[in-house]
Amino acid sequence: MREMISMVVVLTVLSAFSGGMLAAVKTGTNDKIENQVLKFQKAPAIKLILSDVSNDPLQDRFKIMDQEEEVTFFVGKYDGTPKAITFETKGKGFGGDIGLMVGVNIESDEIIGVAVTTHSETPGLGSRAKDDPKFVSQFAGKTMDKNLGIKKSGGEIDAMSGATITSVGVCLAAQKAQELYTRLKPEIEKQTAQMAN
């Protein structure tokens, strides 16, 4: 009996101690982590897409709930009026998920540009999606009703040679972005209208 109690007590105390410690560390680092995520993952891609905006898209951001998932939108203003948004979608690549930042012009519904944020593709092959702008630049200027698949499956995008699966993954993310944008269009317009002031 005494052994039982000691077992229960020791485990409980240990767990409580570790829980408290983790909670403290978590609250201490929370803001820092969010900033780091923005700074290292999203910022370079956003800068690539929205190169000549007059504001800081990282500051002007809002979130929308979409089918139990929260999507963060970054707004790009030109001369003070919000004209473009960027957001991130994911597609399945060769080595896991590929994160794709997609920029859309909210007036003409055209894709301004896309950029890969995170990936774990093979260096030198699939990684070209991020390092070599030739492939992703094909997405620029496409409207929402275009088929953004690779040419082999009837779309309009040339796959990178030797990296078909990565290409398909990026296209998948872009297609998801099209759907998402079309679905959330009214909500996005409401939010950006508020930003205008």
């Binding site: 485990l11 983790l22 982590i33």
Partner: peptide, 16 residues
Amino acid sequence: VIIATFVTVVELMMQA
């Protein structure tokens, strides 16, 4: 429990 606690601490620290 002890190990997991420290691992999570390391993870959060590295993230930050």
